[in-house]
Nucleic acid binder design. Sequence first.
DNA 1: ACAATAGTGTCTTTGAGACAATATGGA
DNA 2: TCCATATTGTCTCAAAGACACTATTGT
Lengths: 244, 244
Amino acid sequence: MDESEFLASYDPRAFPPVAVTVDVVALTIREGALHVLLVRRGEQPHAGRWALPGGFIRPAEDLAEAAVRELAEETGLTPRVHIEQLASYGAPDRDPRMRIVSVSYLAFAPHLPDPRAGSDAADAAWHRADRLPELAFDHGRILGEGLERARAKLEYTPLATTFVGETFTISELRGVYETVWSVPLHAGNFHRKILSVPGFVESTGETTESGGARGGPRAKLYRAGDARLLHPALLRPAREEEVR
Amino acid sequence: MDESEFLASYDPRAFPPVAVTVDVVALTIREGALHVLLVRRGEQPHAGRWALPGGFIRPAEDLAEAAVRELAEETGLTPRVHIEQLASYGAPDRDPRMRIVSVSYLAFAPHLPDPRAGSDAADAAWHRADRLPELAFDHGRILGEGLERARAKLEYTPLATTFVGETFTISELRGVYETVWSVPLHAGNFHRKILSVPGFVESTGETTESGGARGGPRAKLYRAGDARLLHPALLRPAREEEVR
DNA sequence: ACAATAGTGTCTTTGAGACAATATGGA
DNA sequence: TCCATATTGTCTCAAAGACACTATTGT
C-alpha cells in the first residue's frame, strides 16, 4: 500500500475524540497596574465563572491564528497584538465535557480599550493581575505561568516597548518594568542601563510637550530600536528564594 | 440547564476531528558528540523516513506521560529521563492524514544505550545532531527548536549535570558545554566559574582513580548540587548576529 | 520658593575573560 | 623525560548598583 492508497482508506474517526482549544493570556498596563483580560463564561461548563478568552480551533486554521481570532471574537479587541505560544495543557480531566488539550498564548499590547462582550462571553473585562478571581478549569495555573513568562521575557527581550506607545520616555519604560516586576528601580541607573543596550531604544530627537504631572524637566522621547534580544540583559534583582 | 444536564446532552463527536500526538526530542552525548534519537517510520505516511519518536495520546493519559510512554515503546529506553515540554505545532496541513496537533517534549539523559526498535518503528538509532537526515513531517523544525532550547537552558539551569554520570569532574562538565554549544571554553576560567555558582555542584571528597587518558593529575569528583537555577548564569560567548 | 523629576558623574563591587604559573601523572 | 591536564593566581575590563549632583519645570 503506497501513501495515497493509505490516505484514501484512512478513517480519522477511529481515534478517541480529542478537542483542541487555544486560551489567551492577554496583558496590558492601565492606571499603573498590570491587567489581564478575562471573560465571564456564558455557557456550561463553569457558566458564570471568569476564564481566559479562548475556544476551539477551526479546521483550516493554525494555532496562532485561532488565538488571535478568539481574542477578537470574545472581546472585540483587534489591534495588532504581539502573540506568542506559551505552553499546552492536557490533563485528562481538565475539562468535564471531553478530552481537551489547550494550547495557551501570551499577548501584549499598549493601553487597550475596554473590551466588549462577544458571542461566547457574557462579559469581558480587564482585571488587575494582583487581584484575580478564581478562574474556570485550570486557567489560574495557565495565567500564572503566563505572568511568569512575561516577567522573564522583560529581562532579555524588548518586550517592555510593546506596553508603551509609539514613542515613550525612559521613565515610562521604567514604569513598565516596575509594574510587571513589582519592584522599584533606581531611576538614574535604569536610565543609563537602557541607553547602554545596543538597539533597545533610539532617540526621536523630540521631547515631551511638558514636564511631569508634578514637575520636572521635559523628558526626551524614544522609539523601539531594532534589537530582538537585549545584550546585556536587564536582570531582575536577585531572588535567592527562587534559586533552590 | 445546569452543568450535569449539559454534560449529559453533550456530544463530543460534533466537533471536526482532531488528533493530538506527542513527539520527543531526546538528547544524549556519546563519543563526545550531541546525539538525537530518531526512529525510522514503519507505516504510512512518510514510511521509511526518519522521524522523532512519538505518537497519539491515549484517553486517560496526561501529555508528559504520553511522551515518556512513546519514548519507551518505540525505542526500549526506560531510564529516568528528564522531560519537559517544548512547544506545540498545529499547522492544518502538517500531516496528510488529518488535522494533527503535536505537543513536543525535550528529554535528556546520560550515556544512553543503543535503542531497540519497538512496535511502530522499523528502526531506532542515535544520530549526531550535526549530521541529520531529512525528517518526516515538520520534525526538522521541531528538532531545531529543541536543540536551541537545550543550548539556552544550559546557561541558566544545571541541565548539563543530567548529561553526565552520578559523579563527574569539572572537565567532564566542561565537555558537555563545549559539545552542546559547539564552542571551546577556557579550562581555567570555566573551572573557577562552576565552583563559584552556589549549589551547582558539590564536592564528593573523592578523585578519579587515575589521571586522564593522556596524563595529568587526578581530578576531583563532584555531584550535582541543589540549585535549580544558576546564579549568576553561564552565558554563551556573545553572538552578535543573533541579536538583531 | 519648593518639590519632583530627567539626566549625568563617580565610586565600589562583582564577575567574565585573557594569560600565567604550578603540580600531577600517563606514555 | 615529555606532555597533557587539573587547579590556582593575577590582571584587566565590563557592568551593576549605591549615591550624589545639576538642571528643569509644575505648583
